[in-house]
Every structure is written in C-alpha cells, then in structure tokens.
Design a binder for these strands. Sequence first.
DNA 1: GTCTATAAGATGATAGAC
DNA 2: GTCTATCATCTTATAGAC
Lengths: 231, 231
Amino acid sequence: MTAPTKGKRGRRPRSSKDASGHELLLDTAEELFATHGFHGVTAREVARCAGVDAALVVYYFGNKHKLFEAVFMRRAQIINRERLVALDAYAAAAGPELSVEGCIDAFIRPVLHWSMNGGPGWKRFFAITAQVNNTALWGGETMGRYFDPVVERLVDLLRIALPAASDEQLYWGYHMMTGALTLSLSETGRIDRLSHGRCMSGDLPTLFERFVPYAAAGFRGLVEGWRPNPL
Amino acid sequence: MTAPTKGKRGRRPRSSKDASGHELLLDTAEELFATHGFHGVTAREVARCAGVDAALVVYYFGNKHKLFEAVFMRRAQIINRERLVALDAYAAAAGPELSVEGCIDAFIRPVLHWSMNGGPGWKRFFAITAQVNNTALWGGETMGRYFDPVVERLVDLLRIALPAASDEQLYWGYHMMTGALTLSLSETGRIDRLSHGRCMSGDLPTLFERFVPYAAAGFRGLVEGWRPNPL
DNA sequence: GTCTATAAGATGATAGAC
DNA sequence: GTCTATCATCTTATAGAC
C-alpha cells in the first residue's frame, strides 16, 4: 500500500476554496447514491469521498437516511416548481385548444432541460429517481410524496385534452409514461447496446422527439381501447 | 428480549420436510433482494432467514453476487423460453396479417401470466427486475445479457408489422415500453395512491387491457412523428 | 463548525471439524 | 453437505475536546 489513504473510493482532500461541508456532502452523496444505490454506499464513504469528517454527516443531516432525503428533495423541488409553471403557462397559452402533446411537452420539458444543461449533478439525480421509482418498499411512497401534486395538475389538463378518457385510463396512462420517463432519464446505456449504437441513452433531443408522440398516441390508444383474448 | 433468536428479519427453523438448502436459499434471497435490493440485505440474513447456515451461501453459490445472479437467472430463462415460443407461435398464426398489438401481446403475455398465477416468488422476481433495469452500474449490462436476444426477435416481428418504422424508432419504442412494463410488474403501489384507489398495481388484467393499446398506439405515433418546438 | 476517539456490533469470506 | 469458529475489517452513531 503506497497510497496515502485507504478509502475504497478515494479521498478528495478538502481545500479551503471548496464549497461548504453541507453542499459538498450533498453533491458527493448524490454521486455515490446514483451509482450504487442507498444501501450500496456507507455514510463514511460519502464523507471520505467529500473530504469531510464522517461525524459531519450526523451534524448536518441527522443520519444517513435524512442525507438521502435531502439529496432527493433539493432537485425535486426545482422540478416541481418548473413543471407547475410550464403546465400553467401552456394551459393559458393553449386555451381550449389544449393538446395531449402540449401537456406532455410541458410536463417533461423541465426534466429534459436540466438533464441536458444542468451538469452531472442533475444526471445523478435522475439516476436516483429511477431507482426510487422502481423500489416497492419506499419508492411508491417517496415518489408520491414528492411528485403527486404536480401529477394531479397534469391529469387535470389531460382531462380537458382528452374528454373521452376516464380517470382510470388517465392514471394508467401516466403510470406507463412515468415508467418510460424515469428509465430514459437514468441513462443506463441499455438501449445503446440493444440497438447496436443506433440509439443512445444520452441523446436527449432524440428522446424528446420520440417520447412525446409515443406517450401522446399511447394516451389516445388507451381511450380507443382494445379487446384482447383473455389472459 | 424474549424471542429465541435475535436475527433482524427472524429465523425460520429448518425442518426436514423443507426443500434443499440450495432452493431454500434461492427463494429466501429472492424475497429479501426484492424488498431491500442487493446491498440492502446481507448474505448472513439470507441464510438466517432461510434457516440455513451462513457458510452454505458460499458452498452453493460461491459468493453473495453469484447468489443474486442465480436468483435472477432462474426465472429469466423461463421467461425467455416462453416469450420465444409465444412470438414464434403468433408469427406463424398471423402470417402476413401481423399486428403491433399481437406482437406486444405475445411478448408480455408470459410475464403477466406468471405474475398472476406464479405465486409470490414471481412477483418478487419482477420487483428485482425493475430494480436491475433501472440501475446504471450493472443494470443495463445485466438486462441486456439476459433479455436482448428475445427482444431482437420482437423487433424482427415489429419490423414486419410496422414497415414504415425505422430501426431507430423501433428500439426507442421498445425502450419506452420496457420502462413501463418493468415498473408495472414491480407493483410499487404508487398508482394506487396517486389515483386514490381508482387503479391498483396488482390488477393485472386491467394493466394488460391498458398496456397493449397504449404501447401499440405509441409505436404507431412514433412512426407518424411530431415536430416539437426545439428544446 | 470541525475534529478525535470510541462504543457496540455486523460484515463477507475462509479453514477445517464432523 | 453441514456446521463452528474465526479473521480482518467495516459499520452507524455518540461523547466530548478544541
């Protein structure tokens, strides 16, 4: 062993020019949680990797779980605020000419904007979101607590754009849309391999161009219905 | 402390009528990994909960990670086999009258069948699948390794059903479909809360009825396209 | 605000008895 | 095949000095 430190994921020595310990811990936790998941990282690793003392995790956040919640909340709040603004602005601009495409555009544009232009912190946040959304134990509850109020606003507009749709159909439609969206934003690289390079996880402009017509047509197809052979 | 054991998630004392240690460990690992994720469970916990000695994890599987792979592979192989059979049978029956709905039906019918009729082990497997699918580090790679060959067969059929679609569109369409499918099968309960009980995660016949027209219309909408305002 | 020291216990993996 | 005992290390969290 010749390295000066023995930490598993290395230590970044803290310089006086760095951000505050609080922000440093948030950023570092975001990075490590995104890659390894909540249980795949220890609070000590986060502190070590941030170049900060381990006791400061407790000092700033109380415990590891509250650190995770703080990471999640920081950007979720921004998304929620911008989505509400975008949905209201679209509703005001479209008037009675509201379209499904327009509603979905307003709903996903903020997340695509931040994923493209927000830097690596935002990408990591979306990777965390995908994991939370797909975890039964605290995922359903956490996602709902943070995002459901804005989803209700989206469903309100979709009710106008698709008057023939029942609420049950709209909620199922949203459910399928969010599965596609969180997976897409997590950029796992699977589609790159599957498509032999024809599609790229990180190509968000193309994702946007594909996502809106897919989801909008999906909502309409839902309303038209389909009679399967019974399962 | 009055309980005879002190294990965090309890011990199930092993009786001579139980299945072999190998199967017991697989079933128990499946249950715990589904709920808490790979890093959220220790190999010791799996063994304790199975009523089996901790050293047997190493004896049977080599290490904790290989135990996880064994859990995942056990049912993935069954799904793959049945999906291939279903896709081939549908292609043979439909001939040139192949429809997008029919292809998607054939692709998802096996998983819905097992989720509805296969007992809790299958539900747990799908919960694990959703987590793997949405994890960047090993998710993209693992999902691809297990499932991509069958996905290629699906895309082959969709090429016939949708001759106007480019491969790039078909792969994006599959990508969005799989996000919706893995989230749906993981039954996180989020849609139950969001919809105030109008929709239920565990209502798979309704999911099936909604999923096929949504995804099929999505694929068609993808081909028709849509010109967004630039991001 | 930041650090050291430490408590009290769990971890994955192994060696080797039976 | 199954078990005990053990290694070397890591864990969350706290108390209290500076």
